[in-house]
Amino acid sequence: MTVLSCSGLRRRFGDVLAVDDVSFTIGEGETYGLLGPNGAGKTTTISMITGVLERDAGEVVVAGVPMSTRTVAAKRLVGYVPQELALYPDLTGRENLRFFASLHGAARSRVEHVLGVVGLADRADDLAREYSGGMKRRLNVAIGLLHEPKLLVLDEPTAGVDPQSRNQIIENVRTLAAGGMAVLYTTHYMEEAERLCDRVGVIDSGRLVAEGTRRELVERLGERDRISLQLEGDLARAAAVAGAVPSVHGVSAHGHGLELVVDDAREALPAVLSAISTGGAVVRAAEFDEPNLETVFLHLTGKALRE
């Protein structure tokens, strides 16, 4: 079932066309990563989806409820975790949660529940201003979970936090998605997107330039996994036996080494190694090169994801 469907989203700020004709959908239990360099239009897109920002064009439909005509009803279905730490520093963690719970009409018991989920139960009565950066981030996430939304939108929820809090947040998102929640996630951390996202959309200068699973994107670019080997022994014979392994699509020799083009480097490696040792050569070193989202990203936008 489609939980989020946005089509033809457009938003201009003066001369800047921040978002230009962006369309995508997210299904139940699916985690969708929106990746793009600084200023690409991720936050602007998300703000239109959450109803915080007016759209110049396009429509957002959440679980069948259009944001344009049934704004309040649609907003009830969306949980929002803004990029900035949107907390009241002079209220305690629990007070922050209680305020947003009552604003969303969520039950009081949900406050205790989400405090447990993000691991803040024992610090719930401290002022938010006294929290560490990671704790603030977790509270920021917790607020978005209060009313059990169908769609959870997280705008760089792990920006600048310690690995412990980061892992906690990622695990939280995974669990929620496994429970059927649709998740829209932006991040600058590629490994995070690879760990978490079923599908990603790459946005650059306001346009969605590519979309799909990691493997789909990688293949669309004509990129393949590669294995590089340093050998001792008969290089020509080694190349011949390695080339005969079924998952190997190409072999090239250079100096004391071979480079193999394969489907999946990790899967192919054992078969390749055993073939080469049967052929009489000794493997001194092996390396793989898996084209990842970073490569895809660099290729599509000409920019590194983190600057």
Partner: peptide
């Protein structure tokens, strides 16, 4: 501080 965005996203 960004909390306005939260108020605006609330129903």
């Amino acid at each position: 501080t960004g909390t306005l965005a939260r108020l605006l996203a609330a129903p």
